[in-house]
Write a protein that binds this DNA or RNA. Structure first.
Lengths: 334, 334
DNA sequence: GTGAAAGCGCTAACAG
DNA sequence: CTGTTAGCGCTTTCAC
């Protein structure tokens, strides 16, 4: 049998109340008894039962983190930010990987409710309006990491995808490119939609031609980047540069370009989005938009914990800054 | 106030026992009352309190996962394997990132004990014999993911690093290389030690010269790979091929080689270890040793859960197979 | 300063 | 088939 607070109390010849007091650093306990109890706790290797404590306190000091796929290079950094921040404030995190599956998301939420987590940080694979509605009604604090603000009743941390796409596209324009292509992400996601929107805007406001043949839909996978780039390169009238909606697709585009005997950036400039680790490791280094991942997790956790602690009632909708990272995959058109 | 089993019981006009019975699919409850209770549960949106259940059952259906750094490309896959397997068997996983810090490892274990997890999957950053000893003595089931078997009292899943290093080195030898270098990992880790051992063995049993100038210690970071490769390239008598103890250092070596105006694999063949995602994405694709990551996590979780469920008493020490993945960074010496 | 007692929400004998 | 009752290990009034 594991040693409980009762055993400590008996051994020390005091009541459990007193032991509980020293456990929680409460006042009103004689310094001597305190010392004695502490010694006994050490001696007996007592480890308080967090479950029992959770039951009476009605809080578990645990938060849930729901991500679509922890092995997608975007999420480990986010998770790390969440975990570090949580730990620093005394919270543990239960990780739920939903495999990009809507049902799994629902199950994860249910499970987490079951476990009585104090709050949830969630990244929805697709925006599931219904789920969001349900989440709004729960008493449970929730922070959404999202590509856009999908609800005013739930706090969120996100980036401005329209703006970042404009930045990326304008970089190409400033380099003198007039024929610019774009491979979008999965257009069911709002990030892809917004990046496309930003791309369009930048093209149009620079009075450039928006050529639909140069704009193809991918799905954020490397393979789709390869496939769509290949298509674009088969055109008689090719663009001189391409903006892919994420870095993974840029890698696919690299392949296609190289396979066509073309060079980066000599023949074609490529710019990605996200700045995943690989981007700086490949050759040529990929010019891209840096998206803060660690700080996203950090901030999401912080907002969540603030809500848990009741420090705030109002919902926050933080938009984190992105920035252009210029490497060697883009260059002046000559 | 949240709805409890009592509320359901009252509403249904039965005792909490009966409700508990239908909750847990126990027999001995009239089909009609069962239906009725289920309906009420739905209607009232009742969600059983896992904490209370955990207290009485003395099990939380939660396991802990301790990793040195979730953002290190090796671990997300492992974590995914653990999470998937755990979920499938009704367990949640609490993620602890120890930041490669020994103290944090101890704290994590303590925290997890506090939370009364049913077991722990742990990857120790360095082999901490003392900690392992302590772990052995606990009642808590533990599975270690390790580069070698560090304890016969704790189950483990690992790979045979000596063998995999031999495979890597022999690949180079078979390609006709006689001058082979090696950049080791942090030699405080047993994986690095064993890979070095394997390297030596392969070199020696092929009657090749083991040149100490070609064998430098790195620390598994890309930077160290760069630095040490640079040193090796400054030698008058350079090797024609290099085995780096992990892929990240191979990437650093790539840099150094390119910076020296040399080509891969024309001037120098490079082989890594681990087969992280990046390896197939860079150019030239990196020849490497594939280390099963997802299945490592999967297996570790499975062994742990078996121990938790008391299906087995004896400790398992599984060694997973590695395999050579040939890409374009190695070629026949001509 | 300290302790007795109630109760957090649930399960599991045991009795009927 | 169903209910009564006694905890699981802890915190927290309230009294002394």
């Amino acid at each position: 049998m594991r040693v409980t607070i009762k055993d400590i109390a008996k051994e020390a010849g005091v009541s459990v109340t007193t032991v509980s007091r020293v456990l929680n650093d409460k006042p009103d306990v004689n310094i001597e008894t305190k010392k004695k109890i502490k010694k006994i706790i050490d001696k007996m290797g007592y480890n308080p039962n967090g479950v029992a404590r959770g039951l009476v306190l009605n809080k578990t000091n645990t938060i849930g983190l729901i991500v679509p796929d922890i092995s997608n290079p975007f999420f480990p950094e986010v998770a790390r930010g969440v975990e570090h921040t949580a730990k620093r404030q005394g919270y543990s995190v239960i990780l739920c990987d939903t495999d990009n599956n809507r049902d799994e998301e629902r199950q994860a939420i249910n499970l987490l409710r079951n476990k009585r987590v104090d709050g949830i940080v969630i990244f929805l694979s697709l925006s599931d309006k219904e789920l969001l509605k349900e989440l709004e009604q729960r008493i449970l604090p929730v922070v959404q990491i999202a590509d856009n603000i999908s609800s005013y009743k739930i706090s969120s941390v996100s980036i401005d995808n329209i703006k970042s796409a404009i930045t990326a596209t304008e970089h190409l324009i400033q380099l003198g490119h007039k024929k610019i292509g774009h491979i979008t992400g999965d257009l069911k996601t709002s990030s892809a939609k917004n990046r496309l929107l930003g791309f369009k805007r930048a093209i149009l406001s620079a009075d450039l031609r928006y050529n639909e043949k140069w704009v193809l839909e991918g799905d954020y996978s490397r393979e789709s980047g390869f496939k769509q780039m290949f298509k674009i390169l088969s055109l008689d009238d090719k663009p001189t540069s391409i903006f892919t909606s994420n870095d993974l697709m840029a890698l696919g585009a690299y392949e296609a370009i190289l396979d066509n005997g073309l060079n980066i950036p000599e023949d074609i400039s490529v710019i990605g989005h996200d700045n995943i680790d690989i981007s700086k490791l490949i050759r040529p280094g990929l010019t891209t938009i840096h998206q803060p991942k660690y700080s996203t997790g950090e901030l999401a956790a912080q907002i969540l914990i603030n809500e848990i602690k009741g420090k705030t009632n109002k919902k926050e909708a933080k938009i984190l800054d992105t920035r252009l990272v210029i490497r060697n995959s883009t260059r002046k058109l000559i």
